[in-house]
Structure formats: C-alpha cells, structure tokens
C-alpha cells in the first residue's frame, strides 16, 4: 500500500528533476559562473592583457576608486538624463502612434510594417547612419533646416545637442517597439466596452484616458520596463554616433564599462563597475516588477 502510494510521487519528483536539471545546469554555466567570476574579479587588481603580472587582492579598492571618481558619477548622470529623455519620448510617441494604428484604415498593414524597419537595424548601423545625417556641414538634417530658413546646428559637437541627437536616434529606433506592444494591447480591449461607453456619451478623450490606457497598462508597463533596462545599458549607439564625445559628455555607464574592460584592459576595475551597474539595473527592475505585480493584483 505504502509502496504504491509513494511510487508515483517519487517518479514525479524524478521527472521534475530530470526536466529541470538541463536548464539549471545551463543557467549555472551561463549565468551563475560569469556573475561569480565578475564578483571575484571586482575584488582584485588584474589585467587580462598582462598575464605576467599576478592577480592581487584589492578588497574594496576598485569600488572606492570608482565611487570617488567624479567622472563615473558624470556617466551616471548622463545615463539617467538619456534614459529619461528617450524612454519618455518613446512612450509618448509610441502610445500615440499605436492608438492610431489600432484603427482600421487602408494601407494600415503596409504602414505598420514600414514603421517597424528602424527596430530591425543594428544600433551600430543606426548610429553610423545618423552620424552622417547629422553631420553639421553636409548632413541631410542641417540641409533641411537651412531649407526652412533655420541655422545649422552642430549636433554632435556640443554636449546638449549631442544628448538630444542621441535621444532622438534611440527614439527613432525603438518607438516601433512601443508601437508594436501598444497596438497589440489596444486591440486586445473588447470592442463592447467602447460601444457601451459611446452609448453613454463618452468623448474620444474619455475613451482613451479612462478605458484604453488603464486596460492596457500592464502591457505598456512591461514595455516601459524593457525600454528602461535596455536604454540604461546603451553602448553601441553611442560608440557609432558620438564616440562618447564631445569630451566624455555622451559616455554612458555601459560605455565606460566597455572602455575600461576592452580598451584599458583594467579587468578588475571594469568588473567592479559592471557590478555597480548590475545592482542598479536589478534594483530598478525589482521595483518595477513589484509595481507590475501590484497592478496584476488590482486587476
């Protein structure tokens, strides 16, 4: 009796272990090992390019050096500004365009596909493309400004203009992602709710702000989380568009990590900076995910 009662349970447990173990092993290898290596290296002075110099214990030295470096704080401030600017623009434009695209009109599918094109480009390609378009002397953007009687702008040569230029390029590239998710969310709202509201005399603005936005909020919130995380670790766009300049005014934290790791080959210091960045992104993601869970509970 006991045997027959236990057998299915133990077989089930074995099956669970059997199914989970490949993934767990893979995750340990792919995620845990690099993270533990990162933590280990961050407490050492070590350069991958100088194998003849032994790795030495640094304690918190890498962390204190970085956190007392004004330049690193400047990278965080710039990254924050960039994330705020581009994610705000992407959400506003993406929701607006997505709202228009949920309506049925002729050529909508063609337009929708065309709008997705920037997202399919590699950020490096987009960066180089816009770099030429924003060239102050022969770029098409300044040409169009002069056509309408405006002065040329040194887009990539001045700190503030370069920040705006990068935010606009990132918005151009990633707004389609918001459009995609927003359109899907908007189209998932049952038509009957709109019909009932219209019968009650609801205005288009009321429909948008009181029905469309609240009912699609969880999906839009996921889009916001993904864009925040992605923008926070932006590197390749700046590599191609501004090279981090002028000065280091458009260097993001990720740019600084890549430079420290693969140009300076200060492996220990780069690991510490990557750890700081990882903690910030994880903290940010946890706050947002918790908020998302609360939204789900309210629903």
């Amino acid at each position: 009796m006991t045997d027959t009662a236990l057998r299915p349970r133990s077989t089930g447990r074995l099956m669970i272990i059997g199914f989970l173990s490949p993934t767990v092993i893979l995750l340990l290898f792919m995620v845990a090992y690099p993270i533990f290596s990162l933590i280990y290296y961050s407490f050492h002075n070590f350069s991958a390019l100088r194998p003849n110099e032994p790795m030495t214990w640094a304690g918190l030295d890498n962390y204190t050096y970085l956190l007392s470096d004004n330049d690193i704080w400047a990278r965080f401030v710039f990254t924050g500004k960039f994330v705020f600017l581009c994610v705000s623009m992407q959400m506003i434009v993406g929701i607006f365009v997505g709202y228009q695209l949920q309506k049925t009109f002729r050529g909508r599918d063609v337009l929708f596909t065309a709008l997705m094109l920037p997202m399919m480009l590699s950020p490096v390609v987009a960066g180089f493309l816009w770099r030429y378009m924003l060239n102050s002397e022969w770029g098409v953007v300044n040409y169009l400004l002069t056509v309408v009687g405006m002065d040329k702008v040194d887009w990539l040569g001045q700190s503030t203009a370069a920040l705006w230029a990068a935010a606009v390029v990132d918005t151009w590239m990633w707004t389609p992602f918001i459009v995609l998710l927003a359109t899907a969310a908007f189209r998932g709202i049952p038509e009957t709710i709109y019909e009932a509201a219209e019968v009650d005399g609801a205005s288009p603005a009321y429909l948008f702000f009181r029905i469309t936005l609240p009912m699609s909020a969880p999906v839009l919130f996921i889009a916001l989380i993904l864009r925040l995380i992605d923008s926070f670790k932006q590197y390749d766009l700046f590599f191609a568009l501004t090279g981090g300049g002028p000065g280091s005014s458009t260097e993001t934290v990720s740019f600084a990590v890549a430079k420290t790791a693969f140009s300076y080959f200060y492996t220990g210091e780069a690991s510490a900076l990557a750890m700081i960045l990882l903690c910030i992104i994880m903290g940010l993601a946890m706050i947002l995910v918790r908020h998302l869970s609360k939204m789900g509970e309210h629903d």
Binding site: G157, Q158, S159, G244, G245, P246, G247, S248, S249
Partner: peptide, 12 residues
C-alpha cells in the same frame, strides 16, 4: 582625448 575634445567643444 577627452580633455582636448572638451577644449575643442568649448566645454572647458
């Protein structure tokens, strides 16, 4: 590079 670029752009 960073600092010369700052001088060129007029930041410093």
């Amino acid at each position: 590079q960073e600092e010369v670029s700052n001088a060129v752009s007029g930041t410093k």
